[in-house]
């Protein structure tokens, strides 16, 4: 009997947590229209987006370079090293750009968001805001949410672009693939609608999920130092798992069915 009670309590706790997360998201989304929040949002774009730029650009460059190196050694055996461009561009635009950006973003910005909001809660800043009749959803959560939703697709685009240029650096400038065939085969293979737009859509979905998890874990954390550390860990683990799982679903929907 005790066992069933345990299962029931766990289920109810999960469900109420999902419900609270949905309510928070709802509050954050509909807190957008106030003009006062725009400077706050810009401030958060700086924290979440601009400060992630370095890690995104460096990893994009190196992933593009490594892919060109690996692809070249295999393709040159078939005399097909001209197909290096499409290979690098398609894998970056469709998969690596959105996914690696989301994983890095969860580690770099998501954990910081959780820790910041969690500490605000632990030091009762959120309660004091409420005491002053300022809605913390509107003042604290919404700017971070919108900043994350804007920054991640932007970072993913920068990641893909830098990766393609990195592939050009290794493939064309160092290994001697013809520059014309690198670009022209890429251009004839990549489609704006199918590859570029779908990649942006993917990273938009990842942005929603990662930012949502990060903010909710902070907002809902147990207000102790242990609770914040647990919430930060959960943010990184849950968002990474969610991104990888969702990536399969989105890929199947976008590219799997011809």
């Amino acid at each position: 009997m005790n066992f069933f009670q345990q299962v029931g309590a766990n289920t109810l706790a999960r469900l109420t947590s999902i419900g609270r997360a949905a309510l928070m998201l709802f509050g954050a989304i509909f807190a957008m229209p106030s003009l006062k929040n725009i400077p706050l949002t810009i401030r958060q774009v700086y924290v979440v987006g601009v400060q992630s730029l370095l890690i995104i650009v460096v990893s994009g460059l190196f992933i593009g370079m490594v892919m060109a190196l690996q692809g070249y050694t295999i393709l040159v055996g078939y005399g097909a090293e001209g197909s290096l461009g499409p290979m690098v561009a398609l894998s970056l635009l469709r998969e690596l750009g959105p996914v690696v950006t989301a994983l890095l973003f969860a580690g770099r910005a998501g954990s910081a968001l959780t820790a910041e909001i969690g500490l605000m809660k632990a030091t009762e800043q959120l309660s004091s805001l409420e005491m002053m009749a300022v809605d913390p959803l509107r003042r604290v959560v919404a700017p971070r949410f919108w900043a994350g939703l804007f920054s991640m697709p932007a970072l993913a685009m920068i990641f893909s672009a830098v990766g393609i240029l990195g592939g050009h650096l290794v493939g064309v400038d160092w290994l001697g693939v013809d520059s014309g065939s690198y670009w022209s085969l890429m251009q004839s293979t990549v489609e704006l609608q199918k590859d570029v737009i779908n990649g942006v859509l993917k990273s938009l979905v990842f942005a929603l999920v990662v930012t949502w998890i990060a903010i909710f874990k902070g907002y809902d954390s147990v207000p102790t130092s242990e609770g914040i550390s647990k919430a930060t860990t959960e943010t990184v683990v849950f968002s990474s798992l969610a991104v990888l799982g969702l990536d399969f679903v989105l890929t199947a929907l976008m590219f799997g069915i011809e």
Partner: peptide, 16 residues
């Protein structure tokens, strides 16, 4: 930077 990346991807890579 984002706009530049999008333009690069749309014009140079996807080449409508």
């Amino acid at each position: 930077l984002t706009v530049a990346a999008v333009l690069l991807l749309a014009l140079k890579v996807a080449n409508q």
